[in-house]
C-alpha cells in the first residue's frame, strides 16, 4: 500500500508540473460549459425564408409568424441566398405568380414543411383547432447524449493523465529504475490506475454537474465509474505500452479516442439485432451503463446487468493488456 501511495504522490507532482495534465482536466469542464451555452440555440433553431421585398406585405408578415424572414431586393438576390449552403427556400413573384424556390438538394421532409407553411399562409382559412400543452420535463436527447460523451471523455482523460506519467518515466529512463526496484507490476498498475480513477471520477462528476445538474442519481454515476475502472486502466496501459514520448502519445490518443468513443455512439444508430457484435467491448457496456443514468425511458439492459458486464469485459481486457504492458516495461 505504501508503495502505491508513494508512486501516486510522485505522479501528482509530475502531473502538476506538466501543463498537458492540467489542460486535460480543464478541457472537459470547459467543453461542458460551452455545450451548456451552445445547445439551446441548436434546439431552438427556427426555419427561415428568403423573401423578395416585392411580394405582398401581408404574405411576408404571415410568413414571419412561422419562420424567420430574410428580406432581399430582387430575384437574383433571393436566388443567391437560396444557393447558400443551408436549407433556406426563396419566396418571390415570378411572372406575376407567387413562387416558392428550392435549391434542389433539400430533404423531402424539409420541403414538405416549407410547403405546408406557404399553403397555410396563402389559404388563411383555419380548418382545425389545436391546443399545445407542455407536460414534460424538458428532456433533450442531444444534451443527454453529449453528457454521456463528456463522462466517457473524463474516463479517457483520467487514463491519459496516468498514461502521460508512464511516458514521462520512459522518457527520463526512470522506468528502468522501477524495473529493478521491488515494485511489482500489480503495484505499479494499481498506483497508476488509482490516480487515473480519482482524476477521471472528479472530472466526470464535475462535468455531470455542469451538464445535468441534480437531475441524475450521483450514486449510480459513482458506481458506473468504479465499474469502468478497468477501461481507464486499459487506456493508461495502452499509452504506456505503445508511446515512448509525448509525440507518440498524441498519436496513440488519436487512435484510441475514436475506438473508445465512436463505437458506442454508433451503436445508437445500428439495428438492435446487430448489437451482439459489440457485446465483447467494455466501452459498449459502459455506454449502456451511462445510458441508464442519463437517458430517461426504457433501456436495452438494466443498470445492474450493464454494471456487471462493464466490470467483467473491462477486467478481461485489463488482464490481457497488463501481460503485454508488463513484458514491454520489464516490470516484475
Amino acid at each position: 500500500m505504501k508503495a502505491i501511495v508513494n508512486i501516486m504522490r510522485q505522479d501528482i507532482t509530475t502531473a502538476l508540473r506538466d501543463n498537458i495534465v492540467i489542460y486535460l482536466i480543464i478541457a472537459p469542464l470547459l467543453f461542458s460549459f460551452g455545450l451548456r451555452f451552445f445547445l439551446p440555440s441548436v434546439e431552438k433553431a427556427e426555419l427561415s425564408f428568403a423573401v423578395d421585398i416585392g411580394i405582398q406585405k401581408e404574405i411576408a408578415e404571415n410568413l414571419e409568424t412561422y419562420a424567420k424572414v430574410e428580406l432581399f431586393n430582387g430575384e437574383e438576390a433571393v436566388k443567391r441566398r437560396v444557393e447558400a449552403i443551408d436549407s433556406v427556400p426563396g419566396v418571390l413573384m415570378v411572372d406575376g405568380e407567387l413562387t416558392l424556390i428550392f435549391e434542389g438538394n433539400e430533404e423531402s421532409q424539409v420541403m414538405e414543411t416549407y410547403k405546408s407553411i406557404l399553403d397555410q399562409v396563402t389559404f388563411g382559412e383555419e380548418l382545425i383547432t389545436v391546443q399545445h400543452q407542455f407536460i414534460g420535463t424538458d428532456k433533450s436527447v442531444l444534451l443527454e447524449m453529449l453528457t454521456i460523451v463528456v463522462i466517457m471523455l473524463a474516463s479517457l482523460f483520467g487514463g491519459v493523465v496516468s498514461g502521460f506519467n508512464i511516458v514521462a518515466e520512459k522518457e527520463s529512463n526512470a522506468i528502468r529504475a522501477m524495473s529493478v526496484s521491488p515494485v511489482s507490476t500489480f503495484v505499479y498498475i494499481a498506483a497508476r490506475g488509482l490516480l487515473a480513477l480519482i482524476i477521471g471520477t472528479t472530472i466526470a462528476i464535475a462535468s455531470s454537474f455542469i451538464m445535468a445538474g441534480r437531475t441524475i442519481n450521483y450514486m449510480q454515476l459513482v458506481i458506473a465509474l468504479l465499474a469502468s475502472f478497468g477501461i481507464t486502466i486499459i487506456i493508461t496501459m495502452i499509452m504506456g505500452r505503445f508511446a515512448n514520448n509525448q509525440i507518440s502519445a498524441i498519436a496513440v490518443i488519436k487512435v484510441l479516442m475514436p475506438i473508445y468513443l465512436t463505437v458506442p455512439i454508433m451503436s445508437v444508430f445500428i439495428n438492435e439485432k446487430f448489437h451482439y457484435l459489440f457485446y465483447w467491448l467494455p466501452n459498449y457496456w459502459q455506454f449502456q451503463l451511462l445510458s441508464n443514468i442519463y437517458f430517461a425511458g426504457p433501456q436495452r439492459f438494466s443498470f445492474a446487468l450493464a454494471t456487471i458486464l462493464t466490470f467483467i469485459t473491462s477486467t478481461i481486457f485489463m488482464l490481457l493488456v497488463s501481460r503485454s504492458f508488463s513484458k514491454q516495461l520489464k516490470l516484475r
Binding site: 426555419l47 380548418l127 389545436v130 399545445h132 400543452q133 407542455f134 414534460g136 420535463t137 424538458d138 433533450s140
Partner: peptide
C-alpha cells in the same frame, strides 16, 4: 377537428 398536442419539451410559438 380538435387536436391537443402534448409536448414534453418546450417549443417556440413559431414551431
Amino acid at each position: 377537428p380538435q387536436f391537443s398536442i402534448l409536448h414534453q419539451k418546450n417549443i417556440s410559438e413559431k414551431n
